[in-house]
């Protein structure tokens, strides 16, 4: 089977700092892949390169067999790469409804979905449990609900690859349980790349885990392999979470 996403020698410098350093990475369709690593390891920078939010210093990104390295971010979204932000960045002054309507109408314009905007919006809000808050201003939602709205916007893009950057950060335990169910459901129709600090969530969800450290991939394997890996223990699992 051909990987959905491949990166070759992907690097990004910020001044003298090599935030992402020659990363070779491959992701199979249908997988839930967790990316873990200490703060500052380059996880957010890596997925930002994949989504096109920032440009690589060198290296190559292949999505579904096509070189997308030089495509602008909006074009990658239209191919099915959706990115949800680590720092919640919903449109605070718009309603939850309008926040989700934007991605829904995009997929309708691109012919990647059919039907009315309204139906698409309500479907995405229902999947994330926000339907009864559709007409609330997004900035007035609780933090947890804003995180969910961020996921609803990602879902509404009908992604083939959904990138979630620390989606459970700041969520209550009860909200996290619901969230795990939601990601499992999303994974039925999309490949999921999940950056996550919460190890129980990672262990429950991930098919495979990639460990980042200092801009490089330190280890990769099944949850059991990663748990047993001594290097990972030293670099990350033993250390306190940042």
């Amino acid at each position: 089977m051909m990987p959905l996403l491949t990166t070759k020698g992907l690097s990004r410098n910020f001044g003298g700092l090599r935030a992402v350093d020659g990363v070779d990475f491959a992701l199979m369709p249908g997988e839930i892949r967790a990316v873990i690593g200490p703060n500052g390891a380059g996880k957010t920078t890596f997925v930002s390169l994949v989504s096109g939010r920032i440009q690589p210093s060198s290296g190559m990104i292949v999505f579904d067999g096509a070189d997308i390295t030089s495509l602008p971010a909006y074009a990658r979204v239209r191919l099915g790469v959706a990115y949800t932000f680590q720092i919640t960045s919903v449109f605070a002054n718009l309603t939850a409804y309008d926040n989700v309507a934007l991605p829904v109408q995009r997929t309708l314009t691109d012919g990647r979905s059919k039907g009315a905007v309204h139906a698409g919006v309500m479907a995405a809000l229902e999947r994330t449990g926000l339907a009864d808050r559709a007409h609330m201003q997004a900035g007035h939602l609780s933090y947890g609900h804003q995180r969910l709205l961020e996921v609803a916007m990602g879902l509404a893009l009908k992604p083939r690859l959904l990138i979630l950057d620390e989606p459970t950060q700041g969520l209550a335990d009860s909200e996290i349980d619901n969230f795990i169910g939601l990601v499992r459901e999303i994974a039925n129709s999309a490949t999921v790349l999940l950056i996550e600090h919460n190890m129980p969530v990672v262990m429950q969800l991930a098919d495979r885990i990639t460990v980042f450290n200092a801009g490089r991939i330190l280890a990769e394997g099944t949850p059991e392999q990663i748990r047993a890996n001594a290097e990972v223990q030293d670099a990350y699992l033993g250390a306190t979470h940042g």
Partner: peptide, 24 residues
């Protein structure tokens, strides 16, 4: 219209609008 909604989104947060697939 849908176009009007995109314009307002650009006003509110252009970077986010790009990440929803819009050529701003």
């Amino acid at each position: 219209s849908r176009y009007g909604r995109v314009l307002v989104a650009i006003r509110e947060n252009e970077g986010r609008t790009k990440m929803l697939g819009y050529d701003t």
